[in-house]
Simulated assay, not measured.
Amino acid sequence: MTWLFYTLPLLLLLAAIWIYNRLVFNRQRVAEAWSGIEVQLKRRSSLIPPLVECVRQYQQHEQDTLLQVTRLREQAEALQGAASAARSQAESRLGQSLRQLCVRLESYPQLQADRHYLELQQAISDCEQHIQMARRYYNGAVRALNVLVESLPSNLVARLCGFQVAAYFTLDDASQGESPRLEF
């Protein structure tokens, strides 16, 4: 019976250590996933000025759209290092604005034929796909962490050690998830 007296606390301690290590692993995976999103957002942000300049050379009457894209890019860059929820909203608005710009520019045949514009459009399209994949990975990492933080018995260790649920990367407006409307 004395072996049970010593073994049970040891087993509980080992279980708590194992749970704690899983929580730490998942918290680090969330941080790494957010870093991946930031890398892709920075890449997209660096592609916008050349795109805007290329488009500006072809047409001036889309000036409002170009100003909006530039303004949203500046807002998103100002939120670097901010909470993931605030940053995700700004980046979602920027992505929607970029999609609208590309749809509007489809009615400019000479712009569509320009090699630089096509390369920029392809780079932005690739970047948007990478951002989407990074968001999915981030949300998966958040889900894994949140399950541990909220389920028994790991929630006891999480609460004791100060682990919190993480915020998902979401759209602040459901219309941002829709495809842009084509206007001809």
Score class of each variant (00 low, 15 high):
residue 1 M to S: 13
residue 2 T to R: 14
residue 2 T to P: 00
residue 2 T to D: 11
residue 3 W to M: 10
residue 5 F to E: 04
residue 7 T to N: 04
residue 8 L to D: 03
residue 9 P to Y: 09
residue 10 L to Y: 15
residue 12 L to E: 01
residue 13 L to N: 10
residue 15 A to K: 11
residue 17 I to G: 11
residue 18 W to S: 15
residue 19 I to C: 06
residue 20 Y to I: 08
residue 22 R to M: 11
residue 22 R to E: 04
residue 24 V to F: 12
residue 24 V to K: 14
residue 25 F to R: 12
residue 27 R to W: 05
residue 29 R to C: 00
residue 30 V to I: 02
residue 31 A to I: 03
residue 32 E to Q: 15
residue 33 A to H: 02
residue 34 W to V: 00
residue 34 W to E: 00
residue 35 S to M: 00
residue 35 S to V: 00
residue 35 S to W: 01
residue 37 I to E: 01
residue 38 E to G: 08
residue 38 E to Q: 15
residue 39 V to W: 11
residue 40 Q to H: 08
residue 47 L to Y: 01
residue 48 I to G: 04
residue 49 P to G: 01
residue 50 P to M: 05
residue 50 P to V: 07
residue 52 V to C: 08
residue 52 V to F: 08
residue 58 Y to L: 03
residue 61 H to W: 08
residue 63 Q to A: 09
residue 64 D to W: 11
residue 66 L to D: 02
residue 69 V to E: 08
residue 78 A to W: 09
residue 78 A to C: 04
residue 79 L to G: 04
residue 79 L to R: 05
residue 79 L to S: 07
residue 80 Q to G: 07
residue 80 Q to M: 10
residue 80 Q to R: 15
residue 81 G to A: 12
residue 82 A to C: 05
residue 82 A to S: 14
residue 83 A to R: 01
residue 84 S to Y: 01
residue 86 A to N: 13
residue 87 R to W: 06
residue 88 S to G: 10
residue 89 Q to F: 00
residue 89 Q to A: 11
residue 90 A to F: 03
residue 90 A to H: 01
residue 90 A to T: 01
residue 91 E to Y: 02
residue 91 E to H: 07
residue 91 E to C: 10
residue 92 S to P: 01
residue 95 G to R: 07
residue 98 L to G: 02
residue 99 R to E: 08
residue 99 R to Q: 10
residue 99 R to G: 02
residue 101 L to T: 05
residue 104 R to I: 02
residue 105 L to R: 07
residue 105 L to C: 06
residue 107 S to R: 13
residue 107 S to G: 08
residue 109 P to T: 03
residue 110 Q to G: 08
residue 111 L to R: 06
residue 111 L to S: 11
residue 112 Q to T: 03
residue 112 Q to D: 03
residue 115 R to A: 14
residue 118 L to Q: 15
residue 120 L to N: 10
residue 121 Q to W: 09
residue 122 Q to V: 06
residue 123 A to K: 13
residue 124 I to S: 12
residue 124 I to L: 15
residue 125 S to K: 14
residue 127 C to A: 15
residue 127 C to F: 02
residue 128 E to W: 12
residue 130 H to L: 12
residue 130 H to G: 11
residue 134 A to Y: 08
residue 134 A to P: 06
residue 135 R to C: 00
residue 139 N to Y: 04
residue 141 A to R: 07
residue 143 R to T: 09
residue 144 A to R: 09
residue 144 A to G: 05
residue 144 A to C: 05
residue 146 N to M: 07
residue 147 V to C: 14
residue 147 V to Y: 12
residue 148 L to I: 09
residue 148 L to A: 14
residue 148 L to V: 07
residue 150 E to N: 10
residue 151 S to Q: 12
residue 151 S to H: 09
residue 152 L to V: 13
residue 153 P to Q: 05
residue 153 P to G: 05
residue 154 S to Y: 04
residue 155 N to R: 13
residue 157 V to Q: 05
residue 158 A to E: 08
residue 163 F to E: 04
residue 163 F to S: 07
residue 163 F to P: 01
residue 163 F to G: 04
residue 164 Q to V: 11
residue 165 V to D: 03
residue 165 V to T: 14
residue 165 V to W: 00
residue 165 V to K: 12
residue 166 A to S: 13
residue 168 Y to H: 14
residue 169 F to Y: 14
residue 171 L to C: 00
residue 172 D to R: 05
residue 173 D to A: 13
residue 175 S to F: 01
residue 176 Q to W: 10
residue 177 G to T: 12
residue 179 S to Y: 02
residue 180 P to I: 04
residue 181 R to M: 13
residue 182 L to F: 12
residue 182 L to N: 04
residue 183 E to Y: 04
